[in-house]
Design a protein around this nucleic acid. Sequence first.
DNA 1: CTCCAGTCAT
DNA 2: ATGACTGGAG
Length: 351
Amino acid sequence: MNTKVFKSSFSGVLLDWFKVEKRNLPFRDTKDPYKVWLSEIILQQTQMKTGIEYYKKFIKRFPSISMLAESYQKEIYSLWEGLGYYNRAKNLLKTAKIIAKKHNGVFPKTYDELIKLPGIGKYTASAISSICYNEKRVVVDANVYRVLSRVFGIKTNISKPKAYKSFLTLSNILSKNTNRIGDYNEAIMDFGSVVCSPKKPACWSCVFKTNCIAYKKDIVNALPVKASKKKLINRDFNYYVFENNNRLLIRKRTQNDIWKNLYEFYLEEGKNKERKLQKEFEIQKIKPVITKDKGLLSHQKINIDFNHFQILNGSVFDKIKKELGLIEVKADKINRYGFPKVIANYLNSYC
DNA sequence: CTCCAGTCAT
DNA sequence: ATGACTGGAG
């Protein structure tokens, strides 16, 4: 089957699968926008299993949006306890009150109106307008990114905002002959959850397996593509500045790490509050001057303690130099060496 | 420990 | 455009 034919058959195959495998969820027996909205808000960033219990709890306490609107933030937070992302709980009440006051208690029906409400973004506005009112709005959530990127072998980085547009366009094309967009949306999300899951997808039972690009190329687990998150790493550097008679001890950074080939003082890395080096050289009697600084790189935050020792005894200084393999430099010649910015700053200020 | 999930603030 | 939010799964 060529791609064009496959694309035109996609929604039909998906909806046939959905007819049989549709998940039986407590908010699936209704088109009540209040219930659909509540379920969508609860299920954001939340596993189905966890979310269902909270959904039932909320519906039991607030059978209608007017009852929710009359509640208080405190109570909402208390019912929300354990779900996380508490802004959702805050916006839940905000939106309920807005609908009660500004919409006479009637839930807005269109995507354009819905998206103005706090806590309702593109995904939720699409879900409510399509499921409850059959507005032609396809959802683009994590399931959609996953299913479509795999089935059609799309390597677009989904972490970039512009990826949203391309998946929206594709999903619009795929669903253009579907008259129940709400079903299409529920179907692709169920499919992404039950079959085309993030981990260990059930490819053997997949209705698209003969056409799925990722399956054929054996790259299912590599899709969707996400930019490697540059997490900010925290590191703790304890520098030992040994000084004697206008001489300083430094060394070169040779490891494959930040500041490679630059110079630094003797370093102990980690949350080493013990300062074992201090004990080792029996210089604990001389209280070091500790200066704190921070080095901020694009992906690392370095918390630096400079432990400055004025060593009075020249032989202790020599011993440290030898045992730690450090380089002795006259203070007035120190600018012949290249240092990381934070260390250069320290040298300018204290040496 | 790492990865995952929509909305909103910046 | 990017990251904080926050708990669950593995």
